[in-house]
Write a protein that binds this DNA or RNA. Structure first.
Length: 167
DNA sequence: TTAGTGATATCC
DNA sequence: GATATCACTAAA
């Protein structure tokens, strides 16, 4: 079943943990791409120094302030599209980064390439007919890890176990 | 280990 | 208008 608005309308840590093991579906050009999510990461609000929005709202980060279920896609290093799902309350910059899917798609850049996801989906809805997430009843063992690629964040924020992986 | 890549933010 | 930065990947 397709995950409802209420699933995303919760603290981003809960959403990130429970998104692991779900099925990410992207429908484009008459094709449907389905992959199980194996790794996520949370970025929780302006108090989180690793979050893009921790310095305040800008043209890029204002997507994270929108309502839960909004898609936030960001071009990293001029090459890679990174897929995020906005969570929590409106006007709170919380989001979950989808880092990896099953198979060899172990990296946020590879993941979006495999699913043919580009920046045109930015600001879209995860509840629509193009990109959504399904629960097929699968439950696996989830482990917690520190986040990666956030060397600019404060030491205490770097130490947070806000990355979730399927074992 | 390092080069490549381009949007964004921050400085003139 | 110019430059520095960056939630990464592939090649070596």
């Amino acid at each position: 079943m397709k995950l409802p608005y209420e699933f995303y309308h919760r603290p981003c840590l809960d959403v990130a943990r429970e998104l692991v093991g779900k099925i990410l579906v992207h429908r484009v050009d008459g094709q449907e791409y389905r992959l199980r999510i194996t790794e996520t990461e949370s970025y929780c609000g302006e108090g989180d120094t690793a979050c893009h929005a921790h310095k305040g709202r800008t043209k890029r980060t204002e997507v994270m302030y929108m309502d839960a279920g909004t898609i936030y896609i960001y071009l990293c290093y001029g090459v890679h599209w990174l897929l995020n799902i906005v969570t929590g309350e409106e006007n709170e910059p919380e989001a979950v980064l989808i880092r990896a899917c099953e198979g060899k798609y172990n990296g946020p850049g590879k993941l979006t390439k495999a699913l043919h996801i580009t920046g045109q989906l930015n600001r879209g809805s995860i509840l629509g007919e193009e990109l959504w997430i399904e629960d097929d009843g699968f439950r696996g063992e989830i482990t917690e890890h520190t986040r990666v690629g956030i060397g600019y964040a404060s030491p205490e924020d770097q130490a947070r176990l806000w990355r979730f992986k399927l074992q």
